[in-house]
């Protein structure tokens, strides 16, 4: 046997609470694999968000803290400043990071805080039942934009990666997707780079992962992957948005 693909060491045995086909599970697994590959499981402290990924600490077999809604980058800053030789990361959804926690993520990036953020963008508030998010696409139906997001009254979705890339303190920012195996492989590489940036002490790194919410999008999981590819990627182009040090 030359290869085994199985549950990474950094994941617990616990079955996730996610809806069928929700791609959070794929992203969790990639984070755990990166932790294993870098050999940092015992030196890592993760910060869980509020939202669907609130129970991240049940699934990753590492030290973790919860944080209030949107505050994960501030909590991570507190941890990292006390323990600069540990690897500290946040895992946040788009409601958490791009709405209630906008200030925290911008300033963590601006300070060049040596942390990594895994930003899961599924264009909706999942945990609370599918309300409009700052990332909801124009015309997208949600439980608080029943006629589709009206940009006249609700404004436009935020491209967080491009916005943060303008900040000097941001070292590595990449937007990836998990809608097919090839993109999952690319996403994993981006995560590995982001954690490596931190390990080398090079400053703030973030990977925005386009993700699905089949339940609240009202689609079958396989249809949701197609929707992501057709609708989300044109608005949120996949790119290494910033790689200041050519890592």
């Amino acid at each position: 046997m030359n290869a085994v693909f199985a549950r990474p060491r950094a994941m617990t045995e616990q079955k996730t609470h996610y809806c069928p086909g929700c791609t959070h599970g794929i992203i969790h697994r990639m984070v755990a694999e990166v932790i294993d590959e870098l050999g940092i499981r015992e030196d890592t402290v993760g910060v869980a968000p509020v939202g669907c990924a609130v129970f991240l600490y049940n699934y990753l077999d590492i030290d973790m803290q919860e944080s209030a809604h949107g505050r994960a980058p501030a909590v991570a800053t507190g941890i990292k400043r006390v323990l600069p030789d540990r690897i500290v990361f946040t895992y946040q959804g788009d409601g958490d990071l791009a709405s209630i926690g906008t200030a925290e993520i911008i300033h963590a990036a601006a300070r060049g805080e040596n942390i990594t953020t895994v930003f899961v963008n599924n264009a909706i508030y999942g945990m609370t039942g599918g309300q409009m998010a700052p990332t909801t696409l124009p015309g997208q139906f949600t439980s608080t934009s029943k006629a589709g997001r009206n940009t006249q009254s609700a404004g436009f979705p935020i491209r967080v990666s491009e916005m943060l890339a303008t900040l000097e303190g941001a070292t590595y920012i990449s937007r990836v997707s998990v809608h097919n195996p090839a993109h999952v492989i690319r996403a994993k590489k981006a995560l590995l780079k982001a954690f490596t940036v931190q390990k080398q002490g090079l400053g703030f790194s973030m990977v925005e992962v386009l993700s699905t919410c089949p339940t609240n999008w009202g689609l079958k999981p396989t249809e949701a992957l197609a929707w992501l590819e057709e609708k989300m990627i044109p608005y949120y182009p996949l790119d290494e948005v910033k790689n200041r040090l050519e890592v």
């Binding site: 030359n2 290869a3 085994v4 693909f5 199985a6 996610y18 599970g25 794929i26 697994r29």
Partner: peptide, 17 residues
């Protein structure tokens, strides 16, 4: 291992020779 890569639930183990 394409199936493994896409499984959100760690329900798949793949061995390759």
């Amino acid at each position: 291992a394409m199936c493994y890569l896409m499984c959100p639930d760690l329900a798949i183990k793949v061995e390759r020779w």
